[in-house]
Write a protein that binds this DNA or RNA. Structure first.
Length: 470
RNA sequence: GGCGCUAUCGUCUAACGGUUAGGACGGAGCCCUCUCAAGGCUUAAAUACGGGUUCGAUUCCCGUUAGCGCUACCA
């Protein structure tokens, strides 16, 4: 049974790239009946914030992603210390007493003179309270090749001649990311490390740590990065709120559509499927489907969301049950201060016309407002018609609607009949009526709209239109 | 700079030596139609470059170029 982990450091909001990493881990765990672990990598005390942690939980909760076990690295410092100690005892690490201000600028691999300090002297100086950084003693005399196999990137190797004596413990005694991460991966019996490709080269250091500690390394699967259209990795400072998961939630993405979109970035089911349910994703997921080049998430200043994410969201919206959609729309409508009472009638009318949940407020505003936004009376004039025709159409429609049964088919019959009696084309009658009740030319299908609006609203809006024309 | 990784339409991707290089989004056009959508059909659009290997390279190897990542007592 695989055991995988998502290990965010709480130093910002939940990033879309992090969300994707979580999802891939989660899919793998689900696919193989494994265990999903959330581990908060908070060893950098200075940069962690509680707010960030909340934002991570908030994002994951919105996405409906769960986990089986949860840990916090800052509560496991003893474990990290123990691993550091064991590596030191094996002679595979050494204390570096170089003050931070005097770090060597010439040799980047290690600070001169420190590797040679005897264990006795090192112990004595440490006991005397001299501060030090514990560094991994990377083999120097005869370079070795560090190897591992990545499930995505294949065989990887790097010479120890190109790996610096990296830190395991800071002068504060706190473990570095590399040490804490490996110690916890061992202790939590992580079987597969699935993380961003930015860790690919770090992995050589991790392999060294696992070796030194005497444990087999987990399997690795690195994920291609998500980058901005300019090729740079997504950053809030540079690219704005599009990098935060909550932005997508607030804009009206459906969690399952957003997950679907993220999965298609850097992974493919290898067939032509695009729209997939969570279950389909779980059963199709494999490391073989992950590709190796960075994926651009496309957005611009004007349209902040990738066109494909919008299309996928719209597709999920129009294929879900109208009742479920109404439920999803309810908080959006109520949040804008409107009544959600007639949503049952309205939802089917806008279902295939909105891309984002919040579009209900623009596409369907006229369903909710008491007073229509002002519009130009010229809008009321039908194609190949004039004001007189518009007036005639509206008056005929008014009369018809006074008595018609307010349901789709009867409404259509009544209006078509009305058009015929006054001798204008049905389409030419529908146009002014649509503008009169919706306040604009493009709107959902007319008869359903009239039905959802109800007789009183329709009649008074037509009355208002007639007044505008006179 | 050193090391590592990557390179197919604008974007996301398929093609694990032999295809007219496929699909999707977006674009263009047509159809359907009470407007808008949705849907259907059609269309433009790609193997970074140069060498090999091979009967045959998008696919394997080398180089160039470009991009990204790592190079912290951040993760």
């Amino acid at each position: 049974m695989p055991r995988v982990r998502f290990a965010p450091s709480p130093t910002g909001y939940l990033h879309v790239g992090s969300a994707r990493t979580f999802i891939f881990n989660w899919l793998y765990a689900r696919r193989h009946n494994g265990t999903m672990i959330l581990r908060i990598d908070d060893t950098d005390l200075e940069r962690n914030t509680e707010q960030s942690l909340q934002s991570i939980f908030e994002g994951l909760q919105w996405l409906g992603l769960d986990w089986n076990e949860q840990y916090r690295q800052s509560e496991r410092l003893d474990l990290h210390q123990a691993m550091a100690q064991s590596i030191l005892d094996k002679g595979l690490a050494y204390r570096d007493f170089t003050p931070a201000s005097e770090e060597s600028t010439v040799g980047w691999l290690f600070n001169p003179g420190q590797r040679e300090i005897s264990r006795e002297e090192s112990d004595r100086r440490a006991a005397a309270g001299e501060s030090f950084v514990l560094r991994y003693r990377v083999p120097r005399d005869t370079p070795e090749t560090v190897r591992f196999t990545d499930a995505v990137y294949g065989e990887q190797s790097k010479s120890t001649a190109d790996i610096e004596d990296f830190a395991l413990l800071r002068s504060s005694g706190a473990p570095t990311y590399h040490l804490a991460s490996c110690a916890d991966d061992v202790d939590l019996r992580i079987s597969h490390i699935v993380r961003g490709q930015d860790h690919l080269t770090n992995t050589f250091k991790h392999v060294l740590i696992f070796q030194a500690a005497g444990f087999p390394a987990p399997q690795f699967a690195h994920l291609p990065l998500l980058v901005a259209p300019d090729g740079a990795k997504l950053s809030k400072r540079k690219h704005g709120p599009v990098v935060s998961v909550t932005t997508y939630r607030d804009a009206g993405f459906l969690p399952q559509a957003f997950i679907n979109f993220l999965c298609l970035l850097g992974w493919s089911p290898k067939d032509d499927r695009e729209r997939m349910t969570r279950e389909e994703l779980v059963s199709a997921f494999s490391f073989e489907g992950i590709n190796r080049s960075n994926a651009v998430i496309n957005f611009t200043e004007e349209s902040p969301f990738d066109a494909k994410s919008l299309w996928l969201n719209a597709d999920h919206i129009r294929t879900m049950a109208a009742s479920d959609l109404a439920l999803a729309l309810k908080p959006v409508v109520e949040g804008a201060g409107y009544s959600s009472e007639r949503l049952g009638l309205i939802t089917p009318l806008i279902q295939e016309r909105i891309k984002l949940l919040k579009d209900v407020l623009t596409v369907g505003d006229f369903f909710f407002v008491d007073e229509l936004a002002p519009y130009d009376s010229a809008e009321l004039i039908p194609k190949k018609g004039d004001a007189a025709m518009a007036l005639k159409a509206l008056e005929a429609a008014y009369t018809a609607l006074e008595t018609a049964e307010f349901a789709h088919d009867p409404l259509e019959a009544a209006l078509r009949a009305a058009a015929e009696t006054v001798g204008i084309k049905a389409g030419q009658l529908f146009e002014p009526v649509r503008v009169a009740v919706c306040g604009r030319k493009t709107a959902p299908p007319l008869f359903g709209t009239l039905e959802a609006l109800g007789r009183d609203v329709c009649l008074s809006r037509i009355e208002g239109a007639v007044a505008k024309l006179k």
